[in-house]
Amino acid sequence: MNGKQGYSLEHYKYLRRIRARKRIILAMQILLLVSVFALWEAAANYGWINQFITSKPSRAWMAAVNLFNRGELWRHLGYTIGETVLGFSVGTIAGILIAAMLWWSDFVSRILDPYIVILNSVPKVALGPIFIVWLGTGLNAVVAMAIATSIIVTIMVVHNGFRNIDPNKIKLMHTFGASRLQIFTKVVIPASVPTMIAALKVSVGLSLVGTIVGEFLGSKAGLGYLIVYGGQIFNMSLVMAAVIMLSTVSALLYYLVVLLERKVVKYNH
């Protein structure tokens, strides 16, 4: 083991170069974002584009401040985030349980296989009206949409992960006389943690899609509702504000999964 002090001068220079490069990349990323907003603002101010249909950042900001002042901002954000988190938590847990069931019985898995493939390719938006009839407009139907959009992918990715575990690891467990439950808890689950995180990364985005579609179709709150409502009354500033917030929420949720990954998968680094 080499102590930090033991490195040569060149190594420090090397490390510094790497860090400098990282900082420059981050700076460029921020600069790019700021430039796009600045250009957008300028283009609207100088009349290069029609403000009425494109709005501009300062107005979008005002729309958001307005919402905040009326005490509605947190409600809308809360609905969208809550519905998404609920949808993808239920979808992930149920998806993993179903994948476990499929792993447990290869027979059942073979029977269900074509149906899962078909369900996966059905556009989930098409199910929206059904959920609304069954569950009414509002939270329940939106969460159902969020679950529907994410659960099938979770089942497929996780089940695939379960199936691809090195059979020799399972053979090793058999040499100790392990039961099927022991094999599941001591090999299959821990070996699939990275796969489950990968599934989570996909399903968090899909749940958000489901939530927004659900809110489009029938709800009185949430960012999806704001976007549709803003579009109907031709308030593009409100639409843009909601879209920007939506992007932020999406990035935030993804980052939460990355944090979870760092916390859970310790043995990799």
Partner: peptide, 30 residues
């Protein structure tokens, strides 16, 4: 299978998520 027999496979198949001690204890745990 019986506990009287110990079978060492061709590769180590250590579980990468377990520490060395926990890997060594796997059989006893099972």
């Amino acid at each position: 299978t019986t506990q009287k027999i110990g079978y060492m496979l061709q590769q180590d198949y250590l579980f990468e998520w377990r520490t060395i001690l926990d890997n060594a204890l796997l059989g006893l745990e099972v």
